[in-house]
Design a protein around this nucleic acid. Structure first.
Lengths: 231, 231
DNA sequence: AATCGTATTATGGCCTACCAAATACTGTAG
DNA sequence: CTACAGTATTTGGTAGGCCATAATACGATT
């Protein structure tokens, strides 16, 4: 047993979060869960007041969210919450399909039982959340399912990309999840991914992952085009 | 001919670039082409002096580059130019393979002659740049080859992702390009992509695109592991 | 001489205050 | 009722200052 390990255990992990990071999380949260709606203006000084921080911080936060694609900047008019158009959403789902498919294939090819176990754990958590109508839980556990898919084969960069894209369609996700029958089909499709991984069937795992995203995309498209005319 | 088109032609495309954007480009440039080396500290006040702008602007720029992955922020020590480790580089190449493969397949399935023509034009430009030993030209034209690949099938989001990732490995690209034989093999591989697209062979186009990236990745890995011990 | 505590410096994080320019709003005169 | 001038709002950008922390240098103590 090494001193290094002991050190790691002892190390005081400070919250160390800067004010900026806290503010960033708050605003991102607020956008993602709909407190700020797409198209809403984000007036710097108002945000200062609401967050209780200075303009310096608010501006950095807005810049950051802009580069994440959550905020759009109209020249000389200021930042607004980005609108999600249907075409962009479809492309995001497509990219997720490509990357999650890749990760699933890699998991299958690795053929490690721990991966299967971890995925199944997430899957169970998802099913439980559906059963309890806990939609926030569904989202969180789905996210962790995919996180294992990527990180078990050490694809942190790809996971980062998927995460970045996912926040942009987050409110879509929460709508697709509530869809009739999704509580049954979703987990079933994800289960197919796990099955293929267990069999070591890379091709099948990839296809199953892509199918799952494609299904989500189709639902999202339906939801989005149904709501667009209403506005 | 429509008034709309005329307007578009006349429209004064304003420089309208905010100071912040100009500064962003400058600093990104400086990092990408090696004026700032990986690991270098980026001291805010020094940058202010060098760029001739205020700290506010510099900080926003640093935030932006941080979210692009070009700058890393050490807590309590400040921003430095991000180090590119070999593992991360490989993952970036892998992602590019997945996305460029996808785009190539879509191009092939679309089967439009304009796509082939546009790609061939870029390819010729690349060959010419190689012939003239114009390495900057090679990079630019390679970039435009892939840009057509994505944008001809309207995959702007994926192109954005690829672009984002590519800046992080830009100096690697310029090293792989200079490699012996790359001037022959590179265009040859890209030519295979175009051939498959012309045949409408989606599967083949995807494979060819992935092969090309894989080759670049292998060279990059060799370059990187050869230079790492030297430092 | 080795160690320990203390001042100094460099720097990031954060704040306030200010100005210029563009935009949106409003009230008034014709 | 319209046109126009003036006003408020808001962003883009600047200047400068305060505080906390980390590193370094320096000096004192044993």
């Amino acid at each position: 047993m090494s001193g290094a390990l002991k050190d790691a255990a002892i190390r005081v992990e400070r919250p160390a979060k800067t004010l900026r990071e806290l503010a960033l999380d708050k605003v991102r949260e607020a956008i993602v869960n709909g407190y700020f709606r797409p198209g809403d203006r984000l007036v710097e000084r108002d945000l200062c007041a609401q967050l209780g921080v200075s303009r310096t911080v608010v501006r950095e936060v807005l810049r950051h969210l802009e580069s994440e694609g959550l905020v759009a900047n109209l020249p000389n008019k200021g930042p607004i919450v980005a609108q999600l158009d249907i075409e962009e959403a479809k492309q995001i789902y497509e990219i997720r399909g490509a990357l999650e498919g890749m990760a699933a294939r890699l998991c299958a090819e690795r053929g490690s039982p721990e991966i299967v176990a971890a995925l199944e754990e997430s899957l169970t958590a998802i099913r439980n959340s559906y059963r309890d109508q806990d939609m926030a839980g569904v989202l969180a556990n789905t996210s962790s399912f995919y996180q294992t898919l990527f990180t078990m084969v050490d694809r942190h960069v790809a996971w980062g990309v998927v995460n970045l894209l996912t926040v942009r369609i987050n409110h879509l996700r929460s709508m697709t999840i509530k869809t009739e029958r999704r509580g049954i089909e979703g987990p079933a499709q994800m289960s197919k991914i796990v099955d293929a991984i267990r069999r070591g069937d890379g091709e099948g795992a990839q296809r199953a992952a892509m199918d799952h995203v494609a299904a989500a995309s189709a639902i999202a498209e339906a939801v989005l085009s149904a709501q667009k005319p209403a506005e």
